[in-house]
Amino acid sequence: MSRYSIEEFIKQTEQKDKGEGFFELETPRMLEVNLDGQVWAKAGSMVAYHGEMKFVREGILEHGLGTALKKAFTGEGASLMKANGKGKLYLADSGKKIIILNLKNDSIYINGNDLLAFEPSIKWEIKLMKKIAGMLAGGLFNVRFEGTGMIAFTAHYEPITLRVSPGNPIITDPNATVAWSGNLMPSFQTDITLKTFLGRGSGESIQMKFDGDGFVVIQPFEEVYMRAKQSMS
């Protein structure tokens, strides 16, 4: 087989079954879902599928009025869809790296914009960060997951996890914060020095502070989101 031939290209890049189960990383940036039933996924993340599937956008009142109000306030930044059927579903999000976790009666918070997919067996709830709404473009809301099942989220480049321990809080930039353990609830603080140094409009003057015992996942990238007021217009 000659180098750079179409046959060689197909051999190097074609899909291969790895037998990893419900979620399978085809590449670090492409998720294969071996679907036989239902899965929740980020709206717009489907890049291909084969088999019999039906896609349904999340009903605005499906999870109660409280969730609907939160979604309206955040401009539906965490829009979800349900995929029902049987076959192989391929998901991706702007070429971001995909992380898969198998929750076993665990809980975790994930930034709404970084969520990719999860099994319907996991309980979830949108959490709105009211204190910084309107002040900060990123990190306006997140999703808390609890239970047992597979979940996939994304990060720009290579994420790292920082341990949080009592008396040793971790301070992060909300735009670089991807996820954190379900027992932690961050507080928000404004760094006046940074604000003066960077200018009044800089989001880096708003910081997330994590106290307690757990972990925080950060990425080497400050994601810029549409501001709440713009997304509601």
Rank of each mutant, 00 (worst) to 15 (best):
I151D: 02
L80P: 00
Q12I: 08
A92P: 12
G19S: 05
Y49R: 10
F23T: 02
E7D: 04
I60R: 14
V178Y: 02
L65D: 14
V217W: 05
G19W: 10
I100C: 07
D114P: 10
L184V: 08
L115S: 02
Y90C: 05
Q15W: 11
H63R: 15
M208L: 06
K123G: 07
R200N: 15
L136P: 08
K16G: 08
M232G: 12
R144E: 13
S45H: 00
L194Q: 06
R57M: 14
V164W: 04
R144N: 10
G203W: 01
L61N: 15
D36C: 04
A176V: 10
D93N: 07
Y90Q: 07
K130P: 05
E223G: 00
F55C: 08
N142K: 04
T67V: 09
M53Y: 03
V217H: 05
Y90F: 14
I132E: 06
Q15P: 00
I10S: 08
A43W: 01
T190Y: 12
K11E: 09
N175W: 10
T154D: 00
E20S: 12
F188L: 14
N142R: 06
G95M: 05
I110A: 06
F73I: 15
D106S: 05
K104I: 08
E223L: 05
T154S: 01
E24V: 00
E146W: 11
G66P: 09
R227G: 03
Y4P: 10
A155M: 04
S45Q: 01
Q15H: 13
D173M: 06
R29H: 11
G112I: 00
D173K: 12
R163T: 12
S205F: 01
L80V: 02
M185E: 14
V178M: 04
V33F: 03
I170R: 05
K123N: 08
K71D: 07
M150P: 12
K195W: 11
I170P: 06
M232R: 15
L140G: 11
G64A: 09
